[in-house]
Amino acid sequence: MYCPKELAGYFLEGNTVKAWKYINEQEKLTLLDTYHAMITPAMQHIGYLWETNEISVADEHLATVTCDYVVSRLAHARLASPEKNNRKAMFLCLEGEQHYIGLKMVNSLFEEMGWDTKYYGANLPVEYILKTAEAWQPAVVGLSVSIVYHLPKLKEYIEELSKLPNPPVVIVGGRLTEKYDLKPYCSENTIILKDLKEMREWLNYEQTKSKQDAAL
């Protein structure tokens, strides 16, 4: 029986070998379900341990890097080589944001659906993203935010992206989406997605829509 606390324990030890072995001893789920039902609860437990004064931020950093290894390796192991759909998406955390694991999982799920992606990880200033987005012209830009004080920045990123000649669809995710109403910081067209399941549903919907468009 899978236990998020056990996986969290291996992450905190920095033990990539045990963490990888533990995941592989469990029932083999799809990439989405492994991320959603195994990795996410384990990382949420680590957040809980900080809140309850059991671990330090330094411990959290070690756990994050260990988790990153597992997430990356899972993407390789469970990602079937998808049919390319010729759509592009890029992913980044706002400047100052260090919580990048969720974003990385989202990136893999897009790849799984045949998207061409660019993943920038933690802490990317808005100027960088504007430059790349203008040149590469992604259809989607995924932003991750987990600190309340960064919400005004979220607004700035979205506004700046909307001014591009080919404005991308902006998707916002991260732990704040569950706790707060982010609409005031977004534009009308911004998509706010609470978790990986919602992300997949949106992707499925997009896929169907683009197929219908192509058939017309």
Binding site: A58, S72, Y100, G121, A122
Partner: peptide
């Protein structure tokens, strides 16, 4: 923690570049 974060960032970058096929 800054040093730790920098270490983490370089590991993150390395992971992003890791070819898991070769690794396995």
């Amino acid at each position: 923690n800054m040093q730790l974060i920098e270490k983490m960032m370089s590991l993150q970058k390395r992971l992003a570049e890791t070819d898991f096929e070769l690794y396995e």
